[in-house]
Computed example of a mutant assay.
Amino acid sequence: MENKEYIDSGILELYVYGLLSETESEAIATKAKNDNEINDEIIAIEKSIVALSSSFSPFHSVANYEKIKAKLELKHAKVIELEPTRNWSQYIGWAAAILVMVGVGYQYNQLNLTNNQVVKTEVEKVKMEKELQTLELQNKATETSLAVVRDVKNTVVALGGQAVAPESSAKVYWNKETQVVYVDAAGLPEPPKGMVYQVWALKLNPLTPTSIGLLDNFDKNNQRIFAVNSTGDAEAFGITLEPAGGSLTPTMEQLYTLGKV
């Protein structure tokens, strides 16, 4: 321990006051003999005590002190054993250390709480950003759906349910000028796993089907409005249920809806 830390610890004051154990007092006395700085500090403390004592009884000389002492002494008086002075500085030191540890623990806990709150806030921010993006996509899909339905240039072809699914239905919005085709599949049941709806543009005589697209991600499309490939000369439209990835020719046994232009 450095001299400054040793002096600031208050142990030298306890030494001068006689509040240390014999072992501790001997250790300090030995240290003072070998260290001028420690010795000077002890002398300074003693001088301060003398000065303080004088300020309380400045008119009592040494001779008077001895006379008073002699009068107070009783012959054959029993020696009263005093209980050894406890080293309160140790208890104070331990108490201070405990307080520091409690304070550090509290600060550490508060820091963790703050960090957790920051992380939680960031997670909430990312979640809100994703939700906002989802809402924006849904709004765009809704706007697209409304634009398709309200476009007076579109020819609306109603597709009725067939034998395999008589309750099914769909609508085709076909702009003959731009050849853009949208399919409203809200009347179709969700396809089984591993299957997909395929849309066909049909020429009737002779019957010639041409695939114009798949209704992929059916369960994720809340509007159930799908853009498919363009076509310019369809006479009818049909929708079949096919294996994932689609088929080269329609599976007529799985023809869900059909409608003429």
Rank of each mutant, 00 (worst) to 15 (best):
Y256A: 00
G232C: 00
G238L: 10
T114S: 14
L214R: 12
E124W: 02
G160Y: 06
Y197K: 03
V180C: 02
I43F: 07
E167S: 11
I68H: 05
F226K: 02
S57E: 12
Y197M: 01
K120D: 14
Y173V: 07
V100W: 05
T251S: 13
A44S: 13
V104G: 08
S57V: 09
Y182M: 06
G246K: 05
E2H: 08
N39C: 08
E41Q: 12
K75Y: 03
K69H: 10
M128E: 11
N217T: 06
V102Y: 03
E124M: 13
I45C: 02
I68F: 06
N139R: 11
Y15A: 06
G259V: 09
N154Y: 08
P250W: 01
A244E: 14
V16N: 00
A70I: 07
S55V: 06
S145Q: 12
V104R: 04
Q110E: 14
K120G: 10
K78N: 11
N36G: 03
D184T: 04
T23A: 12
S54K: 14
S54H: 13
L52G: 10
P189L: 05
F226M: 02
K78I: 02
E131V: 12
E129L: 15
V228Y: 06
V172K: 01
Y108M: 13
T30E: 14
T144M: 12
V196T: 14
N3H: 02
